[in-house]
Every structure is written in structure tokens, then in C-alpha cells.
């Protein structure tokens, strides 16, 4: 192992990790929003929109992100739609993650007992109030473990961004292997940086999962 070489490469990895984190956090935030909207549309059974959402969820869950990115980055320009690398990465990540988040929210929404809605209605709450104060807080607390698992999944999926010419961790590692033939050093740093990003997130997810178990309102655990 060439320690000096590794130290010299650190700034490149830090920059790449930073890029991964930036795109992942933008993608995760947008996917959470998109997922919640999709889940609400489906649970409200809005006629046409429901069908579109279902079709989107099936399309996104049954195709790999890599292929989605190829279609966005290399295919769409041929139809006159030009997107930058970063845009492609974020759109791809949201397209993929949105459906996973939607499924997580859906299982949460389905777990809310019918009596909760009926009680809220009989207390004279409007539909909007019922959703905001009664249904969503319970649904989201049930969804948290699945949402956290999706966040980890999405961060892992960002590893394919090098195919749309983004200089992420994989890109830097591959570059170093190709240019200097320092395979061991490059791969050690690669694994190190991914663990550095993913282990804290994974620990946080485990902690969250233990915490929200207390929030089992009205449902015998």
C-alpha cells in the first residue's frame, strides 16, 4: 500500500463524496415529496391520476436505474431533450426513489385504522384537518423504517452516476486504477469513503426504527 499516494488522492475523493452527497440529498428530498404525493393520490383513489401513478410505480420499480439513466442521458437528446449530467442524475434518482418512497408511505397509510378517520369525522374535522392532524402523523411514523431503508438504498444506487459523466467516487476510483494502476489503494479509499457515508446513515436508520416503535397509536403492536 502506498500511503503517500492515498493521502495525495484524498482531496479527489472528498470532492467526489461531496458531489454524491449533494445529488443524493436533493434526490432523496424530491423523492420523499413525490412519493408522498403518489401515495396520497393512490389512497384517495382519484380516477385517472391513480392509474397514472400505479403505472409509474410499476415502470420505475421493475427497471434498473442504470438503464433509466442511459435512456435519459443518451436516448432523450435524440428526441431533442438535452439534460445536463447533474439533471439526469437527479431526475433518474427521483424517478427511481419516488416509487419506493410511495410504497413506503402507502403501507403507512394503510396501517392507520379506519376508526381513526371515522372518529375524526364525527368530531367535525374537515377532510384536510383529518389528513394533517390524524392520518399523516400516524402513517408517517409507521413508514419511518421503510423510508430510512429507502434512503440507504438510494445512496447506494448513486454509485452508477459515473455513466452519465459525473465525477463520483466510482469514477475517481476507476480513474486512479486506469491511470496509475494503484488498484489496492484506489479500492481501499473507495470502500472507506462509502462506509464513511453509509455507516452513519445506517446507524441513524436503526436508531430511528427503535424510537418510532413507541408510536403505535391504537394498533396493538
Amino acid at each position: 500500500m502506498d500511503i503517500e499516494f492515498m493521502i495525495n488522492c484524498l482531496p479527489m475523493y472528498v470532492q467526489a463524496a461531496w458531489l454524491t452527497l449533494r445529488i443524493a440529498s436533493a434526490g432523496i428530498a424530491l423523492a420523499l415529496g413525490a412519493g408522498l404525493i403518489c401515495a396520497l393520490v393512490r389512497s384517495a383513489k382519484i380516477p385517472v391520476a391513480s392509474f397514472i401513478v400505479s403505472a409509474y410505480i410499476e415502470l420505475s420499480r421493475n427497471t434498473p436505474l442504470l438503464v433509466q439513466l442511459f435512456l435519459l442521458y443518451f436516448g432523450l437528446p435524440k428526441a431533442g431533450v438535452y439534460l445536463s449530467s447533474q439533471m439526469c442524475a437527479i431526475i433518474g434518482l427521483v424517478f427511481l426513489g419516488g416509487s419506493y418512497m410511495a410504497e413506503a408511505f402507502r403501507s403507512g397509510l394503510e396501517s392507520v385504522d379506519k376508526a381513526q378517520r371515522e372518529s375524526a369525522e364525527s368530531l367535525g374535522l374537515t377532510k384536510f384537518q383529518t389528513a394533517i392532524y390524524v392520518v399523516l402523523p400516524q402513517a408517517i411514523s409507521v413508514s419511518v423504517p421503510a423510508l430510512a431503508a429507502n434512503v440507504i438504498f438510494m445512496i447506494k444506487e448513486t454509485s452508477v452516476f459515473s455513466v452519465v459523466a459525473l465525477a463520483d467516487l466510482m469514477f475517481v476510483a476507476k480513474d486512479l486504477i486506469g491511470m496509475y494502476y494503484k488498484t489496492n489503494e484506489a479500492l481501499t479509499l473507495l470502500v472507506g469513503f462509502y462506509l464513511l457515508i453509509l455507516l452513519p446513515v445506517s446507524a441513524l436508520a436503526a436508531w430511528l426504527e427503535r424510537r418510532v416503535r413507541y408510536a403505535g397509536f391504537g394498533n396493538p403492536a
Binding site: 447506494k156 448513486t158 452508477v160 479500492l187 473507495l190 462506509l195
Partner: peptide
């Protein structure tokens, strides 16, 4: 379990394809 699941599959592929050869 944790180690294999926390790393992206692409990283594992690189480890097997490039890493095993070199190391």
C-alpha cells in the same frame, strides 16, 4: 450481513473484478 448490505453492489463488483486480481 451489515458489511455486504451497506456497500453498493457496484463497489463489490469492482472489488471482485479489479481488487482480487491485484491483491
Amino acid at each position: 450481513l451489515e458489511l455486504v448490505r451497506v456497500l453498493p453492489q457496484l463497489v463489490l463488483l469492482f472489488l471482485a473484478y479489479f481488487g482480487l486480481t491485484r491483491a
